[in-house]
Computed example of a mutant assay.
Amino acid sequence: MDTGTIVDLIERCQKAKAHSYNRYSNFRVGAALLCQDGTIYTGCNVENASYGLTICAERTAIVKAVSEGHRMFTAIAISSDLVHEFITPCGACRQFLVEFGVDWEVFMTKPDLTYKRMKTGELLPLCFVPEALEKDRVNGPA
């Protein structure tokens, strides 16, 4: 992936956090998802008084893309307001990311636009992937 695309993705995720609905945690998160065809979808976290119903920025961006017919992704960038640490996806988001492959890029950023790059599968080692549902089981295949 070229540097210009990475910078664009990181800038878009930084802008996306401005739309965050974070009245409970005051923790803004933004995401920008790059589809294989070059389309970019952004997302932000949307909190809920019932905390378990909160939706993370990464999942918001993926749901937007999937709802428009996209299933193949190249990269996602995520941002928050953390100054000294790179934002990382939560466990639920890591599982959500590997649903669409274990070998695409995740750019975890800081507000100064620096980033750390990892593959989805690196973020969730020994992950449970869709192919696992096709493996032999005690009672035979599904």
Rank of each mutant, 00 (worst) to 15 (best):
Q14W: 03
M108G: 05
T114F: 03
L82N: 12
G52Q: 10
I40Y: 02
P125L: 04
C13M: 06
M1R: 10
Q36E: 13
N26K: 14
V102Y: 09
D37I: 11
F27I: 13
E99T: 12
T5F: 02
C127F: 04
E131S: 15
T74S: 15
E131P: 07
M108D: 00
A18K: 12
L133M: 12
K110F: 07
M118Q: 15
Q95K: 15
S25V: 02
E58A: 13
F96G: 00
V46I: 15
A65F: 00
T88E: 10
E47R: 07
S80A: 14
L82Y: 09
I6D: 01
L113K: 10
R94D: 03
F96V: 06
M118F: 12
T114V: 07
R94N: 15
W104Q: 05
S50V: 07
T3G: 03
D2P: 08
S20T: 14
I62K: 04
S25Y: 06
K15N: 06
L126E: 15
A16W: 00
C35D: 04
A132N: 14
N22G: 06
P130A: 07
C93H: 05
G69C: 07
D81A: 13
M118Y: 13
T109C: 03
V83Y: 06
S20L: 04
E58G: 08
V66M: 08
V98G: 00
A75R: 00
H70K: 11
Q14V: 06
A16C: 09
V46E: 05
K64M: 10
K116S: 13
L126H: 11
E47D: 12
A61S: 13
D2V: 04
F27N: 02
L33E: 02
A31N: 09
P141R: 15
D2F: 05
F96P: 01
R94V: 11
S20C: 14
N48A: 10
